[in-house]
């Protein structure tokens, strides 16, 4: 990770582990009444959100504020920003305002990379979700959450079995998690009806199953993805009931899991569709930990990107 975090591909395994370690250290400081750390005082972080996502924006905002950065929220949804040229104009505006980092959420895959590559802006760019491409900080917080639940995992996830269940085709969370968890050594099985699995998946480093019951039997982690009902309208599956029967984590399936297995969901959940209320609220569910860990991991990412100068030589003593 040189300057931007656009994709998990920007991180080596050791850099990813370092972010998790940094988040771990931050968690110790955060225990108890959390005061602001002065680390990013005088730096400006812009949350540039072209899509609504209150939870992701709040998570980045509180991460930046805990590090004493100045935060500007720029919600571009509903404004005149709908075409690409405006991404450029917006970027140039932010550049003129002196942004040090831009956290971008955008409906178009690759928008974060365009912002970083285009020369419109010199700030660090952090991808907070681009279309159906990636959501790298979500994967990092998921990895952090997994590690906190499996204390044996330290510098790699070798031997960990992860089932990712649901709309793989349209999920940026799934893409980032596949990249990160496999980079760390986990064994991943994607579970979904064939309509929701990308055609190119045969060349991914994963197993694919259409049968949730067998796929989750030995899983250490079951990651449920949000399913959007608009997919039903486009005939990716016949009905919500049929999807739920085949690919929902209901009580029977929850009970079939190993004792140590954890259940994850990036939120917001469709209770009763991809996950039943019993599963969402069970002791196996780490959904709330995912939310609180999000702030720590995003603090770690902001620190890694902004907490130093991009100088190569040693300075001072």
């Amino acid at each position: 990770m040189e300057k931007h975090l656009l994709s998990i591909n920007d991180l080596s395994a050791s850099e990813a582990i370092q972010i998790l370690n940094t988040a771990s250290e931050l968690s110790k400081i955060s225990d108890g009444p959390m005061k602001k750390l002065p680390t990013l005082r005088g730096r400006t972080v812009v949350n540039l959100f072209f899509e609504d996502s209150t939870r992701t924006r709040i998570s980045f905002e509180s991460a930046a504020k805990r590090l004493s950065a100045d935060v500007i929220n720029f919600s571009a949804k509903g404004s005149s920003v709908s075409k690409g040229e405006s991404l450029k104009d917006t970027a140039q505006t932010l550049q003129a305002m002196g942004a040090d980092a831009v956290v971008i959420r955008h409906g178009a895959s690759g928008a974060a990379q365009r912002l970083a590559d285009s020369g419109w802006i010199s700030a660090s760019v952090i991808n907070a979700g681009d279309g159906t491409h990636e959501h790298p900080t979500q994967a990092l917080l998921d990895a952090y959450t997994i590690r906190s639940k499996f204390p044996d995992l330290k510098d790699n996830f070798n031997g960990l079995k992860v089932a990712i269940v649901g709309d793989i085709l349209h999920s940026r969370v799934a893409r980032s998690n596949v990249l990160l968890l496999s980079k760390l050594g986990a064994k991943i099985t994607l579970v979904a009806p064939p309509t929701l699995i990308p055609v190119g998946v045969t060349d991914w480093d994963v197993d694919v199953s259409y049968d949730l019951d067998s796929a989750i039997l030995n899983a250490d982690v079951v990651m449920m993805l949000r399913i959007q009902s608009e997919r039903m309208a486009a005939s990716f599956f016949p009905s919500e009931r049929e999807y739920s029967r085949g690919y929902g984590l209901d009580l029977a399936r929850l009970n079939s899991l190993k004792d140590s297995t954890i259940v994850m969901h990036p939120g917001p959940m469709n209770r009763g569709l991809e996950i039943s209320a019993e599963s969402a609220d069970s002791h196996k569910s780490v959904v709330l930990a995912q939310v609180s860990n999000g702030v720590l991991v995003r603090m770690a990412v902001l620190y890694q990107l902004l907490g130093g100068a991009a100088l190569t030589g040693e300075v001072g003593a």
């Binding site: 681009d130 990308p198 055609v199 190119g200 991914w204």
Partner: peptide
């Protein structure tokens, strides 16, 4: 194909 699956662009 493979590239579209990675990039999250509609095939």
């Amino acid at each position: 194909g493979l590239v579209s699956s990675k990039l999250g662009l509609t095939g």
